[in-house]
Design a protein around this nucleic acid. Sequence first.
DNA 1: ATAGGGTTAG
Length: 475
Amino acid sequence: MKRSRSVISRLVAHAAASPSPPPTDASHLDALRLFRRAHRRGAPLAADAFPPLLSACRSFPSLGRQAHALMVKSAADLDPVPATALLDVYSRCGLLRYALDVFDGMPVRDSIAWNAFISCLVRHGLPADAISAFRAMAVDGGSPFTGFTLCSVLKACASMRAVRLGKQIHARVIGDGNDSLVMATALIDFYSGCGMIQEAFDVFNRLNREKDVAIYNALISACFQNRRFKEAFSVLGLVRPNEITLTCALSACSDCLSLSYGKQVHCVMVRHGFDSDTTLCNAIVDMYAKCGELTSGRISFEQIHRKNVVSWTTMISAYGSHGRGVEAWKLFKRMQEEEISGHVSPNAVTFLSVLSACSHSGLVDEGRECLFAMQSKHGIDPGPEHYACFIYLLSGAAMLNACKANMDLKRGEQMARHLLSLDPDNPGSYVLLANFYAACGQWEGAEYLRRMMKDRGLKKEAGNSQLELPVAIEI
DNA sequence: ATAGGGTTAG
């Protein structure tokens, strides 16, 4: 018996969909409150109540578990429609294990269930498993491939560089007469990922329908990924840009160090009022920093309304690569202070950026503190890259000390000069080099450096030795 | 109920 849509389903769907296109955390919360009220009054739980409820759970991952429990109680977990919605919630919340369990427990799997499963594997960086699932889907029968399937598998092919399979899919797409924009965009992205830029252009040019901004963005991004800057900029001129277009353009400006073009993109962004898009703002900060305008980067960073992890990490690594380790460290500290109100926690990349910044400035104690804090305070296990960075930091510090102890003037000078070129405005670097000369008995060199410091108006603050290196190394 | 284009490190 096919019942008409339950009241609870309609109510929740309505709340989740308002304001119309993009559901927000607030509208999801409204939907959840509505559901709870109806549920407490004893409204019957039909299977069709769950998909809209589960959409609302995307903003509150822990509730997905409770919805799952209700589904088991009402046997809705055996129905492929709500089960697929549940799988998708777990997938989007990063709960891979739960998502796989849902798929395993489904007695009936239609194409959409398979598609959601494959998409989940791709999203979690398991392209080989996604391709295996794709083959299993073919064997399974009764659940034919759809355009959704092929789009997800193309993404897996790009990360696996599975050119043969990707081309087979392309052939099938042509055979099916599927010339949708989404499919063409996925194909462009696939060819781009495999370094086949000409094939990407061919897909674009052979498409006989009106193109949208997403497919232009895919082509522009394809050009940049394959370092075809000239073509990228000429394609850019053909489209009315959105936030994503500008983000692509900015990462290219960072790559080819084109400050003048980057500034123009910044102007376009302001003119379009795109300044609330955090991803785009992050790209602006990065562009200024990579093009040498650290101060402009910092100003843009401060202006970001809703800073996320990437905003903070970008600014920290900007300081790091400019040899401003102390500034990077201060910003990292400030990030943790604002964490309480702003809910922005550092991630593994943030810690690597901090470690890297410390290593470029010889901040051994700070680096060590960072490495320990990531485990004990934030529960993130350091990966090999974190240890490698920390070892590099220790060895750099040990090296200069060794040069000093062995009076290895030539090697020590090389290293100290490198330090100076990284950080010419940091008085600590001059003092370090001067002390190194003094330790080696090169008094003229020491005097020369102190004079140079004075001429450049740099003063070393007493008791604030930024680059003091430890005598003994201990971990 | 499922699919396309974007930012951070090394």
